[in-house]
């Protein structure tokens, strides 16, 4: 059985700390990995792939030194390994054009504006991960207690098996 990772890409260490703190509830099942730049993120994705795990969710800042967050997300969308990964942009500075590009080419799932409300972030992550496991996983029960219970039970109902 492989693990499903959450990766966070953010250049400012303080912001990264806050994200980690807010998402601590998920770590029990979904290990969280961090990257400070798009390059680091690429390394990280490669590593996770080599170890046979999956990436369920990518939270990504837009303005970073080096490649921008949206470029990374478009790349991820093109790579079959991360195509199904739920992609969330966490930013305060993405203009309209960038955002449109992200939605069209990176199939961006969510946009969270900085500064965010921790409860809202948890809800978004919960919903996105729920979507991911329902689409990608066969055995859903181990996720039930952390994610959207009703949606998972509904998926079991229509599949007819656990």
């Amino acid at each position: 059985m492989s693990d499903i990772y959450i990766i966070c890409v953010e250049d400012e260490p303080q912001v990264l700390d806050v994200i980690i703190r807010d998402l601590a509830v998920f770590e029990e099942i979904f290990p969280i990995e961090l990257a400070h730049s798009a390059d680091e993120a690429r390394e990280l994705i490669k590593e996770i792939k080599q170890e046979g795990h999956k990436i369920g969710l990518a939270l990504c800042d837009h303005i970073m030194p080096g490649d921008k967050g949206i470029d990374l997300m478009i790349e991820m969308q093109k790579d079959p390994f991360t195509e199904k990964t739920r992609k969330v942009l966490v930013t305060g500075q993405a203009g309209l054009e960038d955002t449109i590009e992200a939605v069209n080419n990176a199939k961006l799932n969510r946009y969270i504006a900085k500064p965010w409300n921790p409860r809202e972030l948890v809800e978004v992550v919960k919903e996105e991960l729920t979507q991911y496991v329902i689409q990608e996983e066969k055995e859903l029960l181990r996720f039930t207690s952390l994610l959207d219970q009703e949606k998972i039970q509904e998926a079991i109902r229509t599949k007819g098996y656990v």
């Binding site: 219970q149 009703e150 039970q153 509904e154 079991i156 109902r157 007819g160 098996y161 656990v162």
Partner: peptide, 11 residues
């Protein structure tokens, strides 16, 4: 099926 019923009732 007992399984599908349980899942439905859980919702």
């Amino acid at each position: 099926s007992n399984t599908a019923t349980t899942a439905m009732m859980m919702t």
